[in-house]
Design a protein around this nucleic acid. Structure first.
Lengths: 115, 115
DNA sequence: CTAATATATGAACACACATTCATAAAGGAG
DNA sequence: CTCCTTTATGAATGTGTGTTCATATATTAG
């Protein structure tokens, strides 16, 4: 029974909720993962990479931000395995590395467009 | 043609990318939306509400955080139309108000669990 | 009305984070 | 080797944000 007698939820119900609760680690991972999408610059990078593979410099030109800023963000995206990189001479090409990205993108867009 | 001659992407390709680019407003909305999920406390609240409707006090007990903190977070969730509230006497019951939430949750979990 | 309970809110603080600047590292050309 | 280009990284800075504390608001009971 919960502390508040609002609806007399049984302790059995509470136990069942606690059983289904994702682990501390999962919740941390989840929130960290969503946080990656919670930045406009990273979303723009993700969009452009969803179109085609791009090098860092071109990405910075497209996004309209300094190369350093893009590199920093690419590192974060890489650490979360959302993009992968491929070196070709002095250049490094980035591309999307997750089949879920588009799903998330689409679902979120659907949400914000439902007024 | 992009500034870097890395792959000689034509200006037509660039134009097409820019055509598909979500608007400034959409990107802001998207990132703000994802940001809401980027916090462990809010994720816990969302989980519990995915089980059942709950009042603020019980939520704070389940999450293990002060009532004030929960109220602040509920306000954010409400502003993003992820939860809805219903007053019953002095109590306010919250419940999920978005059919996309579970989709996002599941997709994200799938991502972080793929190694 | 007052008292009690449940929730909401404002201010303050501490911490996280995105960007910029400067610079280092890596590779290719000469 | 040096010079140039591309990318990565560290430090610094300013901004954003989650929590707590104190308090206000709202509703019911008496």
């Amino acid at each position: 029974m919960l502390v508040c007698n609002c609806k007399q939820i049984s302790s059995a119900d509470v136990k069942q909720m606690l059983r289904g609760l994702p682990s501390e680690a999962d919740i941390e991972d989840l929130s960290a993962f969503f946080k990656v999408f919670g930045d406009p610059t990273r979303l723009r990078i993700i969009y452009y990479l969803s179109c085609t593979e791009l090098c860092v410099y071109d990405l910075s030109a497209l996004v309209g931000m300094q190369q350093s800023a893009i590199s920093h963000q690419l590192k974060i995206l890489r650490l979360h395995r959302l993009v992968k990189s491929r070196r070709e001479g002095t250049m490094v090409f980035y591309s999307l590395d997750d089949r879920h990205v588009n799903d998330l993108y689409a679902t979120a867009l659907a949400h914000i467009r439902e007024q």
